[in-house]
Amino acid sequence: MQMSPENQQVLEDCCPSIELWFAQSELQQLVVKAARGAGYCWSDAEEIGWAAAWLSKFGLPGGDFMLSLMQSNDLQAPRPATRCWKGNNHPLCPLRCGLALMDFAQLPEGLGASSLVIESVMGLPCLLPFAARTARQIQHPLQIQWEEQSLFLNQDAQPSLEINQVSMEFGKTVDVRITRSNSNMVSIETKNPQYCVGVSKQILEQLEAFAHQTLVPASDLSRLRAGGHDDPTS
């Protein structure tokens, strides 16, 4: 994207580094459009936008992770079953797993009384926001474990401070264990939300390129039908 000198000045004004600062809701709207432009249905795009905002609110690069999701192929939906969800020889999609986790949370195939393992999930960070919403939905804290790492999510959909330390890569496939936690979340410090989030110029350009696919090119007819017959001299 070629920036005008004016916009370059704007960028320098607002962003001393290469990052542009967004309100959380503004990033959410951009990611919704980008996801739709990348080919997701509007329902999924709304959820992806929301998830990007949640991650960013808690200090993770939500725009980056969701962009990676948009660029991924061959990710599968899970087959919900009691205690363990598997795929079919392909990595599972974190969006599909996350949405199913919420939807099945209070069904036998979901969290049940104890824990659930979701095998071979790609893009773990994209699953976390939905796990957080699941905790809020069932009004019970959850523990998320993968490899040697773990964090907690409380019933207000807030993560524990471990979210600052855990290592998460989108491209890695992991088995995730989600457990109804016995920990008293009151005693576990949660991460404070932030409502102004930085997005790098490179990520922004890619999101905007996807988002552009939702726009309709202008024409004389469309201009006319936009209703603009107003007389500006009156």
Partner: peptide
């Protein structure tokens, strides 16, 4: 059938 099963197969209907 619970709605969860519907949305697993037809996610495009989630918003509505």
């Amino acid at each position: 059938i619970p709605v969860a099963h519907l949305l697993l197969l037809r996610p495009e209907f989630r918003s509505i």
